[in-house]
Design a binder for these strands. Structure first.
Length: 621
DNA sequence: TAGACCT
């Protein structure tokens, strides 16, 4: 019996090893298998023993390579279309749930039901929700679109023809209706348009780019993919900046593509490449990857991008920031990926600095810009506090916070607290100190092994170590439910990173608290932080306002000012030109405009009389 | 700058 996610993971990992030892196929393949690492990557865990791949025979290998992921009818007609899976004898209630005859297992291994391990460890928190999304909170969110001929948004999934299989998965995910980013982004993507979308993670953006991709692959009449020796040819590529985020996207994409015949594979570093190669050889339609491992696979010619029809960059502004940009350019521009215009490109992030938008436009063709407001508002969901704390006082100050929190916590349990620090060494050091002082903590950063990173995340999510000390590796995209408190022990240098960090709490309609330790070392952040807090109706300490005023003549904080007037980049840089006056959509206090935005079709529709004024609050507000 | 990103 499953007691927790962590248990089920370790149990099934053990089962898999056992199964591999006892359930061998041909003796030859068993004896020739390389000794397997005890490390089972997350995307391969929780498989029933029967699904554990034994090394394919050379014949199988050839077959799987050639057919790639397609067992279906010949590509002369739409392979899936709206084909209703055969459901002999299935009742109306669960609609063929668990049915294996729906065209799925012809010559293939069973597809693991990605829904059966849902709701991991939720009981520990006494929560009921499954999706983590409070849809009622999504009603009144400002949305902006710009670009030529923006397709109108939809209000229900039923309005979009995503196909039966995908609709069934939407139902299984308990998605009742599309979130704002989905309402707008899905029609845009289904319309074949490139997209740059500003939307907070947790607002349903993974589904927003996955649904059109899966639907497109199902309906597409793609020519037979080339038969390279051991090269695979994915139709879609989804890139993200961290391994954990790629795993998370992969997990979600597996749910969305369940029983659609669309195969999703993830590739990332720090895990044995052989297992990933085997997964790829079994066929891949959608490849989710981190850049480094993908470059490796491309250079080994194990993956070719020449059939890519869909490219999605998650946390796109990070992906195009200095450290990543060369790798991304290599992947997108210097390998064999079809050029923009020949593929469909979707960029998503919660923040989109103007200069990054400019870089990103290299990858896009006549794109639509979409900015979606955050669920609720920062004011409602995240209380931001800034405290002046000298470097030498930070630890004891953190201790005070944690003590107070424990005292106030329910059942005397420590609420989940995510502590961001600047360096990997600093993370280890703080973790050690916390543990020594009676606070169960763990840490996640790039110097830890992948196993350690994943273990840390599990241990944090389950509440075993309710304090997680992290570098920015955990700042973006990770959906960790129940984080009550984000502490910026060391503030980042970039206000956008601050935005992403505090976005780890207050998720899914829940309240969150974000506390920052500020001192003279952070002076360059003072102005943007102060402005951000003001825009979010947070109380700005007078001392911080003084810091902000002082730094204002010093160039405005350099990089921190890059987002210009729209604090979170919720504005299309193409609209920046000679000053634009007029009213803006987000301010104005009326709110009457809030939900119908972007409903227009024509160029520049949705801009009303004047587009965004400066000082407009953003998509994130 | 350190942080992320193949070995």
């Amino acid at each position: 019996m499953r007691t927790s996610w962590a248990d089920s993971v370790s149990n099934s990992a053990a089962e898999n090893v056992t199964a591999a030892a006892t359930n061998n196929g041909p003796a030859s393949s068993a004896s020739s298998r390389p000794s397997r690492s005890s490390y089972v990557p997350p995307h391969l865990r929780n498989r029933p023993p029967s699904a554990e791949p034994l090394a394919p025979t050379p014949k199988e290998n050839l077959a799987s390579t050639n057919r790639s992921a397609y067992p279906g009818p010949p590509p002369s007609q739409p392979r899936w279309g709206s084909r209703e899976p055969a459901r002999p004898g299935s009742g109306p209630s669960r609609g063929g749930w668990g049915n294996r005859t729906g065209g799925w297992d012809r010559g293939r291994e069973r597809e693991v039901n990605p829904f059966e391990n849902d709701e991991p460890a939720e009981e520990a928190f006494g929560e009921q929700e499954n999706t983590g999304i409070n849809f009622d909170a999504y009603e009144d969110i400002p949305v902006e679109t710009s670009g030529d001929n923006v397709p109108p948004p939809v209000n229900t999934f039923a309005e979009i023809d995503l196909g039966d299989a995908l609709n069934e998965n939407i139902r299984r995910c308990k998605y009742v209706k599309p979130t704002p980013v989905q309402r707008h982004a899905i029609p845009i993507s289904l319309g074949g348009r490139d997209l740059m979308a500003c939307a907070q993670t947790g607002s349903g953006k993974t589904a927003a780019f996955c649904f059109p991709i899966i639907s497109g692959i199902m309906k597409g009449q793609y020519a037979q993919r080339p038969r390279g020796a051991r090269t695979v040819y994915p139709l879609a590529l989804i890139l993200s900046p961290t391994r954990e985020l790629s795993c998370q996207i992969h997990d979600e994409a597996k749910k969305f593509s369940y029983q659609t015949g669309v195969r999703v594979v993830v590739a990332y570093g720090g895990a044995p490449i052989n297992q990933q190669l085997r997964e790829l050889e079994r066929g891949v339609d959608i490849l989710v990857a981190t850049p480094g491992r993908l470059v490796d696979l491309l250079e080994r010619a194990r993956v070719s991008l020449q059939m890519v029809k869909y490219l999605a960059l998650d946390e796109a502004d990070r992906m195009l920031d200095m450290g990543f940009e060369p790798q991304i350019r290599k992947i997108v521009e210097q390998m064999d990926m079809p050029p923009r215009g020949m593929r469909q490109t979707m960029l998503f992030s919660a923040t989109f600095p103007k200069e990054i938008q400019r870089l990103a436009s290299d990858f896009l063709s006549n794109y639509i810009f979409l900015a979606v407001g955050r669920v609720g508002s920062s004011t409602d969901l995240i209380v931001q506090r800034v405290e002046y704390v000298l470097e030498s006082d930070k630890r004891s100050h953190l201790m005070d916070l944690l003590h107070a929190q424990r005292a106030n916590g329910t059942h005397g349990k420590q609420a989940l607290t995510l502590v961001f620090v600047e360096t990997k060494k600093g993370a280890d050091s703080l973790e050690h100190w916390l543990c020594m002082n009676g606070f169960p903590a763990t840490t996640i950063h790039g110097d830890r092994s992948q196993q350690e990173r994943e273990q840390a995340l599990r241990s944090f999510k389950s509440g075993t170590t309710p304090i997680l000390v992290a570098t920015d590796v955990a700042a973006r995209g990770l959906d960790i439910p129940h984080v009550a408190h984000v502490v910026n022990f060391d503030l980042p240098n970039d206000i956008d990173d601050y935005v992403h960090r505090i976005g780890r709490t207050g998720r899914a309609g829940k309240m969150g608290l974000a506390t920052a330790f500020f001192n003279d070392n952070n002076a360059s952040l003072a102005r943007s932080l102060s402005e951000l807090m003001q825009e979010a109706n947070q109380e700005v300490p007078s001392w911080l306002a003084r810091y902000a005023a002082r730094s204002s003549y010093g160039g405005g904080g350099g990089r921190n000012r890059r987002t210009g007037g729209g604090r979170f980049g919720g504005r299309d840089f193409r609209r920046d030109g000679p000053s634009r006056g007029g009213s803006d959509y987000y301010g104005g206090g009326g709110g009457g405009n809030s939900s119908g935005m972007g409903g227009g079709y024509g160029p520049s529709s949705g801009y009303g009389g004047g587009g965004y004024g400066s000082g407009v609050t953003s998509a994130w507000d």
